[in-house]
């Protein structure tokens, strides 16, 4: 239901929305910990969490507790952070490029991040002093820079940016494959290719200490810039005449989007279409103004990716489908729908 714009501002209480969001994320995490090859009751999940978080000392089967805490909860938390971060990257790119199809995957940022991460992991770029995520960030910035330059050279307009994104993705995916096939043995190559499709299998709590701060930082940057994001509605010139310092704001927001994407890619591989689908779903629910779109996209993205992770573990018995395949199966048709709708509007 769409509320009339004047009413919705006062009707949807921010506190209620916040509580509902927290509840949704908690529920998703709990389900993420309960579902899997062996189903574990929600009660066991709750007791395990209470034991670890508050030292409650409740009786839980140690094997169940280990599965819930060490594997599934860590994995669900990283999935949630990753979903929120990718969704917000999409929000930022769509607003700044004024392109309904913009998303870190489509624009080659994820591909660049993969190349950067693989360069560090396999070629040993940085001599062990550069982390996987730093390499991914450099790769992501490089790829996005190339795509923007190409888009500008190819002329303005939404199609040019998307075509440039395709070219950039292909180039950086080829570079990644080249590095992998040249320098890695067959076993490592298979592992890396599986990781590139998006894979949460190896995720542990250590990854949470990177994923959570970056997702939080990115969310705070977006929340801090909601007015600037709104101001880009009628283009960069209009934003400038509304008092937005264009270059610094673009640098901060694109920087945040690229950093979020790069870190998530370095942790779980490139998961596509989250940044495309979630902002559109959030716009449908809460409207286009960023004051509500940013928090709604973060929450929706978090819940969506935890749900996709559950699905990736459940669809094929005794086997985990890479999560990138699940998101692509949902995202590619959504991309088609957005494409058709964008054509109708113009």
């Amino acid at each position: 239901m769409r509320l009339p714009p004047t009413a919705s501002r006062t009707d949807v209480k921010p506190l209620a929305a916040l509580l509902l969001s927290l509840l949704a994320i908690l529920a998703a995490l709990a389900l993420g910990a309960a579902f899997g090859e062996t189903a574990i009751p929600i009660g066991t999940v709750a007791r395990t969490a209470a034991n670890h978080l508050f030292g409650a000392g409740l009786a839980v089967d140690p094997i169940d507790a280990g599965i819930v805490w060490d594997y599934r909860l860590a994995r669900a938390v990283v999935a949630a952070c990753c979903g929120a971060a990718l969704a917000l990257s999409g929000v930022v790119l769509q607003a700044l490029l004024r392109n309904a199809l913009a998303d870190p995957y489509v624009l080659g940022i994820s591909a660049g991040a993969s190349t950067g991460a693989v360069a560090v992991a396999i070629l040993g770029v940085g001599g062990g002093f550069v982390s996987l995520s730093a390499g991914a960030f450099v790769g992501a910035v490089t790829a996005f820079g190339c795509v923007l330059l190409l888009a500008r050279a190819a002329g303005s307009g939404p199609t040019a940016a998307i075509l440039a994104g395709i070219a950039g993705s292909q180039l950086f995916n080829a570079l990644t494959a080249f590095i992998v096939t040249r320098s890695a043995n067959a076993e490592t190559a298979r592992g890396i290719m599986f990781w590139l499709l998006g894979n949460l299998s190896g995720v542990r709590w250590a990854d949470v200490t990177l994923a959570f701060p970056i997702a939080l930082l990115g969310t705070l940057v977006c929340l801090w810039q909601i007015r600037a994001l709104d101001a880009f509605t009628f283009g960069a010139d209009a934003a400038a005449s509304l008092g937005v310092a264009i270059r610094p704001v673009q640098a901060v927001l694109i920087g945040a989007a690229t950093l979020m994407t790069a870190v998530m890619v370095s942790l779980v591989g490139s998961i596509g279409f989250v940044g495309l689908v979630i902002p559109h779903a959030a716009r449908f629910l809460v409207g286009a103004r960023h004051g509500r779109l940013v928090p709604a996209s973060a929450v929706l993205g978090a819940v969506f990716l935890v749900a996709c992770d559950i699905a990736s573990r459940m669809v094929v018995p005794k086997q985990v489908v890479p999560i990138g395949i699940v998101t692509a199966l949902i995202g590619a048709p959504a991309f088609a729908i957005i494409l058709i709708r964008a054509r109708r509007l113009s």
Partner: peptide
């Protein structure tokens, strides 16, 4: 921007914005 406002030729958007939303941007 607090003293000088600029109205371009034909600034457009594909967002589902209301007239009021668009005017509220002026408070930025």
């Amino acid at each position: 921007a607090r003293s000088l406002a600029f109205v371009e030729q034909q600034a457009e958007t594909a967002e589902r914005l209301t007239v009021r939303d668009a005017v509220e941007l002026g408070r930025t």
